[in-house]
Every structure is written in C-alpha cells, then in structure tokens.
C-alpha cells in the first residue's frame, strides 16, 4: 500500500513546517508531497531546507486547483494507491488523517470528506462563508440528491480510482464541490466523517469575501453546465488505467 499525503501551500511560511512535522508523526509510512504554488514569501526557502519530503515548485501561482491537479498527476505517475489531502495553513489536523483514511482502505468509499458540520465542533468559519457553504450544500443536495454537509472542505482522502478519474479533467478554480459532482456522476461512493477544524494559523485564505461571490457563481455555473449537459460527458469517462 503506497500512501501519499498532498499538501498544497501558497504563502504558508508560518505553518507549513508544523503541518509537515505533524503529518510525519501521525502518518510515518506516507510519502509527503508539498506543492509550492508559486509562493511569494519564504515558503520555498523553508521547503528547500526540509528533508524527508518531496516538493514540487510550480513556476507561477496556478491556484488551488492547479496545485491539487499537479499533485494528482504526480500520484498517477508514481503509482500510489491512496492519497490524503491536508491544507498547508494548519486548519486540518494531521492527527485525524487515520480516521479519514479508514473507509478508503476498507474500500467503503473512493472519497472521504472531513466535515466541520456533522458535529459542529471547532472552527466553523465566518458567517458570510457559512452562508455560502450552506447555499452550496443545498444545491449539492438538490443536484446530487445526496447530503454532503461540507462540500467545500479540502480535508479529504481518496483512492486511486477517484484520482485517476479526477486528474483527467480537473476543475481549476475551487475544485472541492466539483470533485463531489464528478465522482457522484460516475456512481462512486463518497463518505463524510466528522472532524474538527482549526482557524487558520497563518497565511491568507485563498478566497477573500469578494472572491467568495465569484467562487459561488463559478461553482454554480460549473455544476449547472454539467447538470444540463447530462450524464454522457466523455471527458469525465474513467481512465483505463484505473481498472487494473
């Protein structure tokens, strides 16, 4: 079983080392891949000095989608079996990755999402954000006919079937809700487990308040376009590699 932990990082000089060390502690068997998404602070320098991890430096800021997509492609090239995504800002607790991975390893789901909202513990984000998250959730419930309580959470575990499918035509902007949509469309099983999230300890959210409206519109547009397009989207068809 080859396990990869994917940590996207954009200007996370204050938190990245802690996240890496915590991850090493809780998942010692995993290969850690950090994607430096064109950081403009000392993140690159810090990463170059850390040992025992793999680092990919993107030549320019590609956004969270581009960083994740790069990690997914690396995952496919190197033939890993499972992937855990942890954000580099310290919001996600590496101590909870085991629980996140469990249903994946057992084959109960191809994607497990760590949700803040099942037991409503820890950091729940600001009012405006929660309103946006809520709207997205209502929509995903309507469209996916599935109760995902935290469709924007980036704390996730995947198996290779999910990664192979998603990496083929990955949504570049704000990919989290669209991942759910893509996998659900192929009939893959998605599971949510309750986790606690910390308020970010450093850096700036990739989504400011103004941008979150753009986020919402963009995600709605993507979901609606896919929804109207129906279930025969060839670009989303699964990769032949995923069958063996």
């Amino acid at each position: 079983m080859k396990l990869m932990v994917l940590i996207p990082a954009f200007n996370e000089e204050n938190t990245i080392v802690t996240v890496i060390e915590e991850t090493k502690k809780h998942l010692p068997e995993a290969d850690i891949l950090v994607i430096n998404d064109g950081s403009t602070d000392n993140t690159k320098k810090i990463l170059m000095q850390s040992s025992g991890i793999k680092v990919i430096h993107l030549p320019f800021n590609m956004g969270i989608g581009g960083a994740i997509w790069t990690g997914f492609n690396f995952f496919c090239e190197e033939g890993y079996d499972f992937l855990v995504r942890i954000d580099g800002d310290g919001q996600h607790q590496p101590s909870e990755t085991r629980r996140l991975l469990e249903p994946i390893v057992k084959g109960e789901a191809v994607l497990v999402i760590g949700s803040r909202f099942i037991e409503r513990e820890g950091y729940l984000s600001s009012f405006y954000r929660r309103a946006g998250v809520k709207l997205l959730n209502i929509l995903s419930r309507l469209i996916l006919k599935k109760g995902i309580t935290d469709s924007t959470s980036g704390f996730r575990a995947y198996n290779r079937d999910a990664i192979y499918l998603l990496s083929k035509d990955y949504p570049f902007d704000y990919p989290e809700p669209i991942e759910i949509y893509m996998l659900n469309k192929k009939g893959f099983k998605i599971k949510e487990i309750s986790i606690k999230m910390e308020e970010r300890k450093g850096g700036v959210s990739s989504i400011s308040l103004m941008k979150s409206y753009y986020y919402l519109i963009k995600v709605l547009l993507t979901i609606l376009v896919n929804f109207l397009y129906g279930g025969n989207d060839e670009s989303l068809s699964s990769d032949p590699h995923s069958n063996h």
Partner: peptide, 13 residues
C-alpha cells in the same frame, strides 16, 4: 500553459 507548467514542475522535482 497550465499543462506545460505542471509537466515542468514535476520533471524539475
């Protein structure tokens, strides 16, 4: 451009 950037970044790593 994105595909190019990703390919180069992975190769470089």
């Amino acid at each position: 451009i994105n595909t190019l950037a990703m390919t180069i970044a992975i190769l470089e790593a």
